[in-house]
Nucleic acid binder design. Structure first.
Length: 397
RNA sequence: GGGUAGGUUGAGCAGGUGGUGAGCUCCGCUGACUGUAGAUCAGCCGUCUUUCGACUGUGGGGGUUCGAUUCCCUCCCUGCCCA
């Protein structure tokens, strides 16, 4: 086994990434929410943080200026996608991912582990690695933990992530979860061994499905390795919020004395983030706000609206009164509803700006509540709002 | 005026040469979306009905027939050609 002292460049050794807690979770146990500070080669990140997803070296529909305006502190890009196109070596030749996409702040690269699930029929897994059939041209690609690390090193992200094998919650037997989790652990060690870039942090991933003992074991195994941070994977599928919370309440207490950041992979609804911060999570990513925006749904403090609904065609109000985003500053719901129907490209940009601004501001609000010690009230306020019988039309406006 | 091709559910079409035309694509309406094979997908989209189902509907009117979108008569409308 590799220990922290054998690796250079880990958090413990004062390496590429330091994580300091400016406000730890309170001792009274009212919440596990905490305030932290990530320091990376490309700048500082206040946690809890939401990371917009830029799979193909772009957050769809936005450019870096938009991302700055929206308030993105760090974004995620995808190893698998960039490996297939345009190729990690090409990006390396062109000066690395930051330069390639003109993003000067931190980048976290996902390993491609999630594609083990999302690509469905297009892949096969064995102990050695994953065999993917490219979704672009059908060509076969063998992806090993070592390969996943090599690609991420070529991309030059601030934070790399281990190749893992998530298990989709539906139709997963305990035996399948156990096997995938065990494999994830073996791959974690191989990723550590393959990782050579002292300026790049590396996070390990906890799996274990919804099996409490496997989650706990996985947490202990991954936490015992000298990673710079701990990802919790496999919890953005079709499990219920209660199941997710239960899984987090297994993992996080085992990390209570652990100084490293905790990253819950793949969650992105406001309610999910609030609950997971309460459970002690520091980092998040999700395609949800951006995808949902492109498909016409915009988030509001009291719910959401679907701009496809005909009632917005005559609505002169901004999407959200008082919102600082460029959509709300200049345009009406009627205009956005028109752009959506007319299939105009501007819609995607404006809608994405709004939802990302909304979520990033929501995280800022969470951070200030933690700072002020009022986070439990914020949680209570939101759960009361959700339980309230007044909004009769479900989660709508 | 003559010739010719047509008129099908909001639009554009398919089909149908005497045996029950509600099929497609747009548009429209609604929903879904969580480490992006997603600016995507699903449902609905003549009327009534929660469903089952019933009814209406092939430009209008008439005729032949057990039965007409199909055959006949007549009228209307549209495109093109010729005057």
């Amino acid at each position: 086994m590799i220990t922290a002292s054998q690796r250079t460049g880990t958090a413990a050794a004062g390496g590429p990434l330091s994580f300091t807690l400016s406000r730890p979770a309170p001792a009274d146990g009212s919440t596990r929410a905490r305030l932290g500070h990530l320091s990376t080669p490309h700048g500082e990140v206040a946690t809890p943080v939401f990371m917009p997803v830029g799979t193909n070296a772009t957050v769809k529909a936005l450019d870096p200026d938009d991302l700055h305006e929206v308030g993105a502190q760090i974004i995620l890009a995808n190893t698998y996608h960039l490996y297939l196109r345009p190729g990690h070596q090409r990006i390396e030749r062109l000066g690395g991912l930051h330069r390639f996409m003109a993003w000067d702040r931190p980048i976290l690269t996902d390993s491609g582990g999630f594609q083990v699930v999302s690509l469905g029929e297009l892949r096969a897994v064995d102990d050695e690695g994953v065999t993917f059939r490219s979704h672009l041209d059908g060509s076969l690609h063998h992806f090993t933990p070592e390969h996943a690390i090599a690609v991420q090193q070529a991309l030059g992200s601030d934070i790399a992530v281990c190749l893992d094998q998530p298990v989709p919650p539906h139709a997963s037997t305990r035996a399948a979860v156990a096997e995938a989790t065990q494999r994830t652990h073996e791959w974690a060690e191989r990723c550590l061994a393959a990782h050579r870039r002292p300026e790049q942090a590396l996070f390990g991933i906890v799996q274990g499905g919804l099996e409490e003992d496997l989650r706990a074991e996985s947490t202990r195994v991954i936490a015992s390795l000298p990673f710079d941070g701990i990802c919790i994977g496999g919890l953005a599928g079709d499990e219920t919020p209660a199941q997710r919370r239960a899984a987090l309440d297994v993992c996080v207490p085992l990390l209570a004395e652990d100084p490293r950041p905790r990253y819950l992979m793949g969650l992105g609804s406001p309610a999910d983030l609030l609950d997971a911060v309460d459970a002690g999570i520091d980092m998040f990513d999700s395609v949800l706000p951006a995808r949902v925006a492109r498909n016409g749904t915009l988030w509001l403090p009291d719910g959401r609206i679907n701009l496809r609904n005909s009632r917005f065609l005559d609505d002169p109000a901004p999407v959200q009164e008082g919102c600082r985003c460029r959509a709300c500053r200049s345009f009406s719901r009627a205009y956005l509803a028109h752009l959506l129907r007319a299939d105009e490209l501007l819609f995607y940009r404006l809608a994405t700006c709004h939802n990302l601004t909304f979520l990033i501001d929501f995280m800022a609000r969470i951070r200030s509540a933690i700072a002020e010690g009022t986070f439990p009230e914020l949680v209570r306020e939101h759960s009361a709002r959700r339980a309230s019988p007044i909004p009769s039309e479900g989660p709508a406006e």
